[in-house]
Structures are given as C-alpha cells and as structure tokens.
C-alpha cells in the first residue's frame, strides 16, 4: 500500500499548508509509557535527559558537518549514519526532557540552557581530530549507556539498550581508524597524535558528576559518570597501544568558577554552532517540521 513517493505519503498524513520542510517529526515517544518512576523527581529526570540528549544532539551536528567533506565516500556514509543514530537518541531524550517537546529543546533554548559536555562543541575539519574525538565520545557514552540499560526509567533503559547496539559499531569505527592512522605512516601517526592532544583537555570533564547526575544515580535512574572512568581508560589504553601512540599528558581545560558544560557554561564554539543549528527554526517559528 506504499505510495510511489515517500514524501507523498507524508504530505497526505499532514494536510497542513505550514508543512513545508520535507519531513514530519511526530512525537517520537508517541504511545510510549512516560510515567516518571516512583520516588524520582520529575524535574531532575527532565534535566538529566537534557544532559544526555544535548550531548547526542551537538555531537550529531558536528558529525553532520562532515557530509560532503569526508575524505572517502565510505567514511562520508559512516559518519552520516553515526550522526543519524545520535540524532535519534537526541530526539527521544529531548522528548523525554519535559512537556515542551523535542523541537523546543533543540531550537528555542539559548546557549546557557544547553547541558551538554564541552567535548562535543569544538569545530572539526581535521580527520585525525575527528577520529580522536569520536573515539573519546563513543567510548565514554557507550560505557554510560551500557549501565543505563538497567535504569529504573523505562524510556532511558530503552534508549540505552538500543544505543548500546548502535554505538558498539560507532566505537569500533573510530578505534579501527585510530589504529590505522596511528600505526600508519610517520605523517598519519603525527596527525593522529595531534588529534588526541587537541581533544584531551576536555576529557576530564566527562567524568566529573553534576549533582543531578549523582542524584539520578542514587535513585537507580542515571549513572554517575565517575564510575565509567576505569572502563574508558582501559579502552583508550588498548586502542592507543595498538596505534603505537602515547596517552597525552595535557591538563584539563578549567571551567568558569568550577562550572562547565553540564552547568550551561560552554566554549566559544557553542554560540556559532547554535546560530547555525537553530537559524531556520527561529526564522520560521510557525513551521511544522
């Protein structure tokens, strides 16, 4: 019963003149039980979902920037697929983050309202940096999601169970490139080392728990990121060893009065990123997506 053209089917389902942007974003949690688990503070749960959702949204945006810019077609496709999986996680998590819904959270919050770690913010452009960045991000997030599979929140547990399967492929992709480049030519080795050195100042922040993350962990809903450091270190050590690279020794980038991404304090890159990410939605606030 499918129509010839996928867009016709969508246009039929949305008989609305404002529908103009090529896809329809219904509530991704339609028909999913979204009751907050007993004993859990709803505001805390929403804030926690924003943190995890913003990490995925901003990382996905940076990966999308590689579309038409990757060195090989296969990598272009791989990066776009990884970006799409993360965007899917972001949609579910931002929908879970409160009544106002995913579009509001993605497009109509200001910079200081975003709760992503600063790691996901810097502009890319260098393939060595991209691979180091992706390995760090996926190793950290995969370890978090694997623990979130047993979350008391059914939505978080479901997003995690799905995400673990997908991110296993993402991490392997980054790890195998890191080994190929690190254990490649002298030139590729240097580029890969420079990538890890550039990314390293934002690594410690990943394992510094925000009070909301601690509370969510105490309630069996979230994960204290400090608890995944050992697993992360083990994965990175194994990849770097195979890549004939050393673990960088570069101090962490300090926050502002101890505040970092999880508090809404971001790097300079974040403002530019949001300006692009949000521009169309803000120019057409009545549009239906």
């Amino acid at each position: 019963m499918s129509t010839e053209n996928a867009y016709e089917a969508l246009a039929e389902a949305h008989d609305d003149a404002r529908w103009a942007f090529g896809t329809s974003f219904d509530d991704p949690l339609a028909g999913v039980d979204t009751t907050v688990p007993s004993g859990v503070d709803g505001d805390d749960l929403h804030a926690y979902c924003l943190m995890l959702g913003d990490d995925a949204l901003i990382a996905s945006h940076r990966l999308q920037e590689w579309c038409t810019n990757a060195p090989e077609l296969e990598d272009e496709v791989a990066l776009a697929n990884i970006a799409l999986d993360l965007l899917g996680q972001a949609r579910l998590l931002l929908a879970r983050a409160g009544e106002r819904g995913e579009d509001y959270h993605a497009f109509f919050r200001d910079e200081q309202e975003f709760r992503n770690v600063r790691l996901v913010e810097p502009a890319g452009g260098d393939f060595g940096y991209l691979i180091a960045w992706l390995l760090v991000f996926t190793s950290w997030r995969l370890a978090l999601l694997q623990r979130l599979e047993s979350s008391r929140d059914p939505v978080l547990a479901a997003v995690a169970a799905k995400g673990v399967k997908e991110m296993t492929y993402h991490r392997d992709y980054a790890a195998r490139w890191a080994v190929r480049l690190g254990d490649g030519t002298e030139y590729s080795h240097d580029r890969m080392r420079a990538g890890f050195e550039a990314v390293w100042p934002l690594v410690d922040e990943l394992f510094t728990p925000h009070p909301i993350e601690r509370r969510m962990a105490e309630h069996g809903v979230g994960v204290d990121p400090a608890t995944v450091r050992a697993e992360f270190d083990d994965v990175l050590a194994r990849v770097l060893d195979a890549a004939t690279l050393e673990l960088p020794e570069i101090p962490a980038l300090a926050g502002v009065s101890g505040k970092t991404g999880r508090h809404g304090v971001h790097t300079e890159a974040m403002g530019y990123l949001l300006a692009e990410l949000q521009s169309i939605a803000r120019a057409h606030p009545e549009a239906i997506w």
């Binding site: 996928a6 969508l10 389902a13 896809t23 329809s24 974003f25 219904d26 799409l84 999986d85 993360l86 965007l87 899917g88 996680q89 949609r91 579910l92 997003v159 799905k162 995400g163 997908e166």
Partner: peptide, 8 residues
C-alpha cells in the same frame, strides 16, 4: 534504528 527516518 533509533534515528530511522522511515518510521514516519
């Protein structure tokens, strides 16, 4: 997949 655009 989580982000599968074919769902709609």
């Amino acid at each position: 997949y989580t982000g599968c655009p074919a769902m709609e």
